[in-house]
Design a protein around this nucleic acid. Structure first.
Lengths: 203, 203
DNA sequence: GTCTATAGAAGGATAGAC
DNA sequence: GTCTATCCTTCTATAGAC
């Protein structure tokens, strides 16, 4: 059957996302993963911190793959951004407002208390923005602007997750979706204007 | 001297902000507040949960007052928004990336685990947006748009806090500041266009 | 590799002297 | 109101049988 190590990692990531790092105990993890307590320390001799770091990076990769899936399926980046925010809202609602960002809770918890885990979260956020920024560049944005837009969208998404989970409502995400789409459209239009005037300066 | 109850509340709010609710122990609170353990349960018979709820609401009021202070000191709402984001970035940096939103960490921690505390955080977020929305209305935005803009700005701020604390950099907040200002300017300009044409339709 | 028992520390909470 | 001692639970982590 599936690796025990993998089950532990998956259960950890899921619990960390919903309850945070501090609020999740090793006993709860082994219960969820249907594994023995000893197995955790066999596969993760570094204890909870190592497990936390690996769970963060694993969640980061999965979400990065989700970015790929959503954007690759969309006709263009504008539609991709809209789809991503809409999908996030739907998933949040379906899971009873439990599953939002897989690492945000942990990121805030450990930011001032655990440097190793803090770095792990920072790396993941950077990876996500790099992925989005690359797509925006390919769509025609100059590199610096693509990076800024990616950062803005991630901030908007993360902040909306906070408000939505607290309010148990997807309203903030729906508002953010419209703004995110508008933001990307504007940034792309600016990029087109910057380009060596195609037919004549618009308006 | 200052009330013991007040010292406990203040110390709790400060620790919750930096380490979260779960990560802060009662012993740490009394140490920081220079009080006795028994005093906590004397003033907060409901235990940690009651203390958490009161600390959240107290932080909410203080931050609400900060909104008032910053916006009232600014020449207009646009400048106020810029000042607020800039001030947040400066404070974050000065405190070694510890002091961001006083309730965001707790909000994510308890969103799916403690309904009482979840409600407290939701109330606070709503109060903040209501305050900002009222100011945008007074500046000329129609109510629905004022509400949306306030929600967007709070989401942008909260999300930027997450990214900034993780990265130990104020970059996201600086990017967000520009976007927040631009967003308010656009919303106000739309409002002016909606108004019964002052001198002639612009452009 | 898996399981159980358990150590040792820290958590929230209570009781009762002062 | 304050302080300390203490209860009980839970937590992380380890040891050692299998």
């Amino acid at each position: 059957m599936g690796d025990t190590r993998e089950r532990i990692l998956e259960a950890s990531a899921e619990l960390f996302r919903r309850q945070g790092y501090v609020g999740t105990g090793m006993n709860q993890i082994v219960a969820e993963a249907q594994a023995a307590l000893g197995s955790i320390y066999h596969f993760f001799p570094g204890g909870k911190q190592q497990l936390g770091a690996e769970a963060i990076r694993r969640s980061g990769e999965l979400y990065d793959a989700l970015i790929d899936t959503v954007f690759d399926a969309a006709p263009d980046v504008v539609a991709g951004v809209g789809d991503f925010f809409r999908g996030a809202a739907e998933h949040l609602e379906v899971t009873g407002f439990a599953d939002a960002c897989p690492i945000a809770t942990v990121a805030l918890e450990v930011a001032s208390t655990d440097e190793t885990l803090r770095r792990a979260t920072a790396d993941v956020f950077e990876r996500w923005t790099a992925n989005a920024a690359a797509r925006f560049r390919r769509a025609g944005m100059p590199p610096a602007r693509a990076q800024r837009v990616a950062t803005l969208l991630l901030a908007l998404l993360e902040g909306s997750f906070v408000l939505c989970r607290a309010a148990r409502s997807t309203e903030a995400l729906r508002v953010a979706e419209h703004e995110a789409v508008a933001l990307v459209i504007t940034a792309l239009r600016l990029a087109a204007d910057d380009a060596p005037l195609p037919t004549g300066s618009p308006r």
